[in-house]
Design a protein around this nucleic acid. Structure first.
Length: 1007
RNA sequence: GCUCGGGUGGUGGAAUUGGUAGACACGUUGGACUUAAAAUCCAAUGAACAUUAGUUCGUACGGGUUCAAGUCCCGUCCCGAGUACCA
């Protein structure tokens, strides 16, 4: 009986589903293990072979842990709110819920084919009202909380109200908006209800505020900082502009320090922690207040180098700084306004691309140095960013290169405050023991002491204090989209009110179109039934808003990361209870995720927000853990190998001064360029491409002919008008993607297939190689539909089976490394599984022997147990696959078919290739699934050796090997080695200077 | 620029504390079986010279430490990822 993977895989997939083999129990005496994948967004394109990589790795761990006797929670679900379904809805009118459902069905089919051991009974979908009910509920908890900075935790807002009632806000240390003013208990009580609510909003952990947001006009929505890459939107790559809008925000900045410190307690890769540390961007220094001469105003700056305060020779404000217009003198007004206008015009992108150019304008105003009282000119410059710190810097040109460059450029004096340091060429920014000079009370102090002293003196005169600054900004939480969680919020007199949690979920309303309204309101503005009756506690028609009890509902929806910030807690709940987001017992049992797998692209988005929400929920006593993910691994991306054909485009250029109308396709009147662009008739193959690029046109006859013809043609056309012409030729290769399915493993293109596939090229001429083959160009790119390089896991499953797919994906290389998909090597793994199958069969018959295994076979087995166990613990899955291959090769050579060995081997391999393992297990006579069979125990005794094959080296170079007993002493070894004739031959009569012997390792003879 | 990874055959990749570089596979070549092909099996496969033993060179490059370096140290170059006028 041969290895029929199709039948085997279908059989066991059905068995697992029917027997709920992988359903996790919340009541178990076993130790728990929670292994989780980042849940996918179910896109319309379906899964490609890159998606399952992480799922396969986590599935191996999950299955391995079950064999080890753990109670394993290994769930899966869908992050099913999001843009693509909405874009599709805009184009086609199909409700995103339908698109999403269809896509999920397809995902599930694809996932099921790969044989994952997911507990599907716990599936979540973020777009399911029963799920987003709790997303809304958590939002309400955030709204009803404030952050007590003194205690470092979130508390109910009612506690804050109590504090305000008894003592006002002057003693309250809280994370809040910067513009809160002080008030006493009496003031508080005198405020109107609305005034009180406005103040409380500045303290809530989610708040509504007029903030500068990233607006993406093409997407019609705001974006969070982590949704912008290189100044353009992550999705679509559209430009983003800064805009002031009233939006919901999350006060994540309150948690900056805890998010930073928490990194020390979790087992994540250093690079990932580093990304989060950068994103949080803690810097310790001081805030310093400068008085503005002839004004009441002060300028606050943040600096990490208060010790260099005596080196300040000017200040720079961001062009957007609010004081600029106030303090600019009439003489400078024109120049300043022109500069502001010029910088505003430049996009983020341009500003980022152009770091070198130094620009700025003097405002005409001066500030007063806090100690010397000397006037300090105030400039504006775009190297100071409005969004970081206070948007203003004290410039110390001798100690900061940017200040230095700015000062040089505008001839501002540079004062040297570093003793015996030459600053004629560049600033001195080292933080070392260099002593200060020209610095009054800081003279002769090194960096560390000067830092402390400077802060002390600033505090004494009330013009500064030690301060820690974070780059992490509060996260904008509103999106002007349809397909997201509705906010459980309605507005009374413009003030937000929460819907009572009893009436959740607040379900998405129906709209007739998924676009913003004509007035520019979000899509929910189109809903007719989208008002809240605060008496009946239900959604009612907008027409009733004139009623006293009916109010408008929030029109924004929540961002994609809302639902993904807590889903790992929902999986813990086995009964999907309606009255809790997850039960206390369930959360106490499962605690947090032991192993989390996903892409590194979530380093500063999802992973930061999920940690933030978890910490908040912990503060409010709603979850028992401080960190959601104990260990995290990023699987590398599997890239596609795109195939390219190269279209040749030519430009013919003439130096003659010929009237335009005489020539075809003329683009310029001075030097004429004839364009023969987009000629669909000529493609250059890859083998020619390299030559072509190297030596130009002349080397290839085919191209020469082509060119000659073209030139003749043009000359003839012109000759008709009696014009003579000199032609120059420019050529250009345009790469065009070819579908990878049209290319074989030798990179040969099916040219007829290509012509059928892209009818616009149906007349294409291919310049082929000597064998009349067209060789495509290859390039490694991200897998995507638009690049025609997607490889579908279903196809691999059909051709080779899921077990082969699983093992091959692991075999490709280290999990965390990015690697291109190349189907070429898959036969190696497929052959391996066939060999494995053969071990258990004699011809067509299943056949194992009941006799005791040979010593060699036991050694092979236990070697394998040891290595595979270590590999799984270290997530080194690729080397495990090699180990299995070696094992099977050895057992086959030994002609081993002993039950004792083959039973253990089936269990060993079952995490990797579960279908074949189950089949062999049942053939071995077991009626239960292999899933919880005990993992074989490694026994050292089988590996104990009496001899060692010693490498005998001369001057470090191995020349031959020698089998020697391990019992021998150093002297005995030396004697045997020196007597060996090969040693004598190597020495060629010389006396060895030294003989190094490391028993059990090596012999090295130094001659 | 900064931070973190990385650089090993034709290819993907192995190599515990420094101790036989290239495991395992793919590919290639030759052979067996076959009318033939596919499948399967066997052998060879880092490079060069010699092809009988063998010799020399080889882990980006240049130095160093060591009996011994892919591995440790110093310097240089290149590639990838993240981040960026962060005061």
């Amino acid at each position: 009986m041969s290895y029929n993977f199709k039948q085997i895989e279908a059989k066991w997939q059905k068995y697992w589903a029917e027997n709920q083999t992988f359903k996790a129990s919340n009541k178990s005496d076993k130790e728990k293990f929670y292994v989780l994948d980042m849940f996918p967004y179910p896109s319309g394109a379906g899964l490609h072979v890159g998606h399952p990589l992480g799922y396969i790795a986590s599935d191996i761990v999950a299955r391995y842990k079950r064999h080890q006797g753990f109670n394993v929670l290994h769930p899966q679900g869908y992050d099913s709110f999001g843009l693509p379904a909405e874009q599709y809805a805009i184009q086609t009118g199909q409700h995103p819920a339908i698109t999403t459902k269809t896509n999920i069905k397809r995902y599930r089919e694809q996932l099921d084919k790969i044989g994952f051991s997911f507990d599907w009974s716990r599936e979540v979908r973020t777009s399911d009202p029963n799920y987003y009910k709790w997303t809304q509920w958590i939002f309400i908890q955030l709204f009803e909380s404030w952050y007590d900075a003194a205690e470092g935790k979130a508390k109910p807002i009612a506690d804050l109200v109590e504090l305000f009632n008894s003592e006002g806000n002057s003693q309250v240390k809280a994370a809040c908006d910067e513009d809160v003013t002080e008030f006493s208990a009496e003031d508080w009580k005198a405020f109107s209800e609305k005034e009180q609510q406005e103040i409380l909003l500045k303290y809530r952990l989610t708040y509504l505020a007029e903030t500068e947001v990233n607006w993406c006009p093409q997407l019609g929505t705001v974006l969070a900082n982590d949704e912008i890459v290189n100044g353009v939107s992550e999705r679509g790559g559209y430009p983003v502009v800064r805009k002031k809008m009233k939006q919901w925000s999350m006060r994540i900045s309150a948690y900056a320090e805890r998010l930073l410190q928490g990194l020390n307690d979790i087992d994540w890769t250093e690079s990932l922690k580093e990304s989060q540390r950068n994103w949080i961007g803690k810097s310790v220094g001081a805030s310093v207040t400068f008085k503005v001469n002839d004004h009441q105003d002060t300028i606050e700056v943040f600096t990490t180098r208060p010790d260099t305060i005596f080196g300040v020779t000017f200040m720079t404000l961001a062009p957007e700084h609010e004081l600029v217009s106030k303090i600019t003198t009439p003489e400078q007004k024109e120049a300043v306004e022109a500069y502001i206008e010029a910088t505003a015009k430049r996009s983020e992108r341009e500003r980022m691309a152009d770091v070198k150019t130094i620009s700025g304008v003097f405002t005409g105003a001066y500030a007063e140095h806090p100690f010397t009282k000397e006037p300090v000119p105030i400039w504006i410059g775009d190297y100071v960013l409005a969004s970081y710190g206070t948007g203003a810097v004290m410039a110390v040109p001798c100690g900061d290169q940017r200040d230095y460059d700015f000062a040089k450029h505008f001839n501002i004096p540079i004062k040297n405050i570093f003793k015996d340091v030459d600053i004629s060429e560049e600033a001195y920014s080292e933080k070392d023991d260099t002593k200060l000079t020209n610095s009054d009370f800081l003279n002769d102090l090194p960096y560390k002491k000067a830092l402390k002293r400077a802060i002390f003196e600033l505090e004494k005169i009330g013009q500064g204090k030690g301060k820690t600054n974070y780059r992490l900004r509060d996260a904008v939480f509103s999106r002007q989209r349809y397909w997201g969680e509705p906010f459980p919020v309605y507005y009374v007199n413009g003030m937000p009110k929460m819907i009572d949690e009893k009436y959740l979920p607040l379900q998405l309303p129906e709209v007739e179109k998924y676009l913003p309204t004509e007035e520019g309101e979000p899509p929910l503005g189109r809903a007719d039934v989208w008002a809240w009756d605060s008496e009946k506690n239900e959604v009612v028609s907008n027409n009733l808003i004139d009623d006293k009890t009916v109010f408008p509902l929030e029109l924004n929806t929540m961002p994609g990361w809302a639902g993904s910030s807590w889903y790992f807690f929902r999986y813990m709940e086995d009964e999907k209870r309606d009255e809790v987001f997850a039960s206390v017992e369930a959360m106490k049992y499962w605690e947090n995720v032991d192993l989390y797998l996903g892409g590194s692209e979530h380093a500063t988005g999802h992973l930061l927000y999920a940690r933030f929400w978890t910490k908040f929920l912990k503060d409010r006593g709603l979850v028992p853990v401080e960190e959601p993910f104990k260990k995290l691994i990023n699987q590398g991306m599997i890239l596609g190998e795109s195939a390219f054909v190269y279209r040749i485009d030519f430009q013919f250029e003439s130096k003659n001064n010929i009237p335009k109308e005489d020539i075809l396709n003329i683009e310029k009147t001075e030097n004429f360029i004839f364009r023969e662009l987009n000629d669909p008739n000529l493609f250059l193959s890859k083998t020619f491409k390299e030559e072509f690029e190297k030596s130009g046109l002349a080397t290839i006859d085919a191209i020469n002919n082509f060119l000659d013809n073209k030139i003749d043609f043009i000359k003839n056309e012109l000759a008709k008008n009696s014009i003579k012409i000199d032609l120059n030729i420019h050529s250009n290769l345009t790469p065009i993607h070819a579908a990878v399915s049209l290319v074989n493993t030798s990179n040969e293109l099916d040219t007829d297939g290509f012509k059928n596939w892209r009818p616009e090229f149906k007349d294409a001429k291919f310049i082929t190689n000597e064998d009349d083959k067209y060789i495509v160009g290859r390039e490694v790119e991200k897998m995507s539909k638009s690049k025609f390089n997607v490889v579908n896991p279903d196809d691999i499953c059909n051709e080779y089976g899921a077990d082969t797919l699983r093992m091959y994906e692991m075999f490709l290389g280290p999990l965390e490394q990015a690697k291109p998909w190349n189907t070429a090597g898959i036969t190696g793994v497929y052959n391996f599984l066939k060999k494995l199958w053969k071990l258990y069969h004699n011809g067509e018959e299943f056949s194992v022997s009941e006799e005791a295994a040979s010593k060699d076979s036991l050694k092979t087995l236990h070697k394998t147990i040891k290595k595979v166990t270590e590999d799984i613990e270290e997530f080194s899955f690729n080397t495990s696959v090699s180990t299995f291959m070696i094992c099977v090769n050895e057992l086959a050579a030994q002609k081993c078919n002993s039950r004792e060995i083959l039973e253990s081997l089936a269990v060993l391999i079952s995490p990797y290739a579960p279908h074949i393992a189950e089949e062999l297990w049942s053939k071995l006579g077991h009626s239960e699934s292999i899933a919880t069979a005990d993992f074989p125990k490694f026994e050292e005794k089988h590996l104990v050796e009496s001899t060692k094959t010693y490498p005998i080296s001369f001057n470090g170079k191995m020349r031959f090997t020698l089998d020697l007993s391990l019992d021998l002493s150093k002297d005995e070894i030396e004697k045997i080695v020196m007597e060996d004739e090969r040693t004598q031959k190597q020495l060629n009569g010389r006396e060895p200077k030294k003989v190094i012997i490391v028993p059990g390792k090596i012999v090295n003879i130094v001659g």
